[in-house]
């Protein structure tokens, strides 16, 4: 029990007449790299929104290292160690790359409004620390050359990476990536796969990712979960899953 980073028990949510997610059960062990797949509209992003507190489930419970996090605000959930990216990139467009990361590190900064206003000692100290930390993270992604550019000025692939870097700046235990390779070319995807592996292997961060690119999914995920019409259709070893008849039908049926 204790090494379950995240547990979802019978989680579900309705939007009006639509049961977007139903009876969702998931247990993630420390250090796992799991893929969540399924046709468009299956409810994958909604699962992320439920885990991160953007939506509140209408049924079930979500436990994070044993604590129930239902009813917590998204910013509180970040403090419990969950960070995420978004399917349609949501960066702080008019802030610099560096500032995008600094915002994410804000929760670990302590200096007061007064210190900031009057530029007291701990302002400088913490700002220097945070800058070093942010540069360190950008280095992992090979992005420190962009540090002072506006986020919106980056090319698409770099923006996707910056979102992951920003999530990393919150010091997460569990990272949720929503279609990180969407819109990337094969070279960029290869690079991304390396980065995701690096994050897991070097920093031991548990990762749950949504992805349509089966090359990425089969290349790095250790376990897969298939969602269809809000329900878990299959779960297990990636190679078994892709040969599973019901999964193939779900995808073919939807014309994916």
């Amino acid at each position: 029990m204790s090494n379950h980073v995240l547990t979802c028990n019978n989680v579900g949510i309705r939007f009006g007449g639509l049961q977007a997610v139903q009876d969702f059960n998931l247990q993630i062990e420390d250090g796992e790299l799991i893929g969540l797949i399924g046709p468009n509209g299956a409810g994958k992003t909604t699962v992320f929104n439920l885990i991160t507190g953007v939506y509140e489930p209408t049924e079930g419970e979500i436990l994070l290292a044993g604590t129930n996090i239902i009813g917590k605000m998204p910013h509180q959930i970040v403090r419990y160690g969950i960070a995420r990216t978004f399917q349609n990139i949501r960066l702080f467009d008019h802030l610099s790359v560096l500032d995008n990361l600094k915002v994410a590190a804000n929760k670990d900064m302590r200096y007061s409004i007064f210190s900031g206003m009057f530029r007291l000692g701990n302002f400088w100290r913490e700002e220097d620390e945070i800058k070093d930390k942010a540069i360190e993270i950008l280095d992992i992604f090979g992005m420190s050359k962009h540090a002072n550019k506006l986020a919106r000025s980056l090319p698409y692939g770099e923006q996707r990476k910056l979102e992951i870097a920003r999530a990393m700046a919150t010091d997460p235990k569990l990272l949720l990536l929503d279609e990180p390779a969407a819109g990337m070319n094969p070279t960029e995807t290869d690079e991304l796969m390396d980065t995701i592996m690096l994050i897991r292997n070097e920093f031991g961060i548990t990762t749950l990712l949504i992805e349509h690119d089966m090359r990425l999914v089969l290349g790095i995920c250790e376990r897969l979960m298939v969602l269809n019409y809000g329900k878990v259709l299959a779960e297990g070893n990636p190679h078994d899953i892709v040969n599973d008849q019901s999964v193939i039908e779900a995808y073919l049926g939807k014309g994916e």
């Binding site: 991160t52 953007v54 910013h75």
Partner: peptide, 12 residues
Amino acid sequence: EDEIAAQSSGIN
């Protein structure tokens, strides 16, 4: 810039 992203980055 983005309320949802800000929240999800730990901003109250």
